[in-house]
């Protein structure tokens, strides 16, 4: 267990806490029947932590992921990101948070098929309102950082799975977000490519990037420094691993 600040409603998190959830719950109304996907998750993640979230299907992993990624809003509880209480923000403000603070890496890559790698990486910068020239330069730098400087003009279907996922990582990082949020990032990759990708994550972690990764594979989770296990919408275990 990490030492957790005793957080009460009305407090503000300590400055080095990037993610803080307090008794976070999320209910879904499935045709009259209420499904309680999260039943009160309290979690604190510090700057530059590398956290894997595990759990069987139905445990609430994805729901927690969506809430942390500001794609969804909680039914009750608080969520603080970088000292800002986001559980009470409007739609547009959430979009801004997603744009500036969060970098998503999805299992299915989620690249735009008709756009080339450079344009895919450019997208978050477009919504950030950067001028074209700056956008191009930064997107190119981000692609170079993941080793795809020579693949900028290629469309996703002209790239291998590993390359696609690296484009997605470049896109996630291009706005220098507070957290990198990865949802089963190796789910669609073979084991060699997966290992390479884990190396990329490891490097990013060493460079100071905070990473939260949802996975159900133990050997992938083993790369993380801290593993949080969910069961039935609650945190079951939360342990640090020896580096």
């Amino acid at each position: 267990m990490t030492d957790v600040q005793a957080f009460r409603t009305g407090d503000t998190p300590l400055p080095d806490i990037v993610i803080l959830t307090h008794k976070l719950t999320r209910d879904y109304d499935m045709g009259g029947e209420v499904v309680r996907a999260l039943r009160g998750v309290s979690l604190q993640i510090r700057k530059n932590e590398y956290v894997a979230v595990m759990g069987p299907s139905g445990s609430g992993k994805s729901t927690l992921m969506n809430l942390i990624g500001c794609l969804d809003t909680p039914t009750a509880g608080e969520y603080w990101l970088n000292g800002q209480k986001v559980s009470a923000l409007s739609d547009d403000e959430l979009a801004r948070i997603r744009n500036k603070e969060i970098g998503f890496v999805f299992q299915t890559f989620n690249l735009l098929p008709r756009a080339n790698a450079l344009h895919n990486v450019e997208l978050p910068l477009i919504y950030a309102g950067l001028p074209t020239k700056d956008r191009r330069a930064r997107a190119a730098r981000a692609l170079a950082r993941v080793g795809l400087a020579d693949r900028m003009d290629h469309r996703p279907n002209e790239l291998s799975g590993g390359q696609r996922q690296r484009v997605a990582i470049a896109r996630a990082l291009v706005n220098e977000p507070s957290i990198l949020l990865a949802d089963e990032p190796t789910g669609n990759l073979d084991s060699t490519t997966s290992a390479e990708l884990m190396q990329v994550f490891q490097d990013l972690h060493h460079q100071g990037q905070t990473i939260v990764m949802v996975t159900h594979e133990h050997d992938i989770a083993a790369h993380a420094a801290r593993v949080v296990t969910l069961r039935d919408g609650l945190v079951a275990t939360d342990q640090l691993r020896a580096a």
Partner: peptide, 16 residues
């Protein structure tokens, strides 16, 4: 729809 989802996840607002 998926493209719209992707754009939204990357920070596109409704008006975008």
């Amino acid at each position: 729809t998926r493209e719209i989802g992707i754009r939204k996840s990357l920070g596109a607002r409704r008006r975008d």
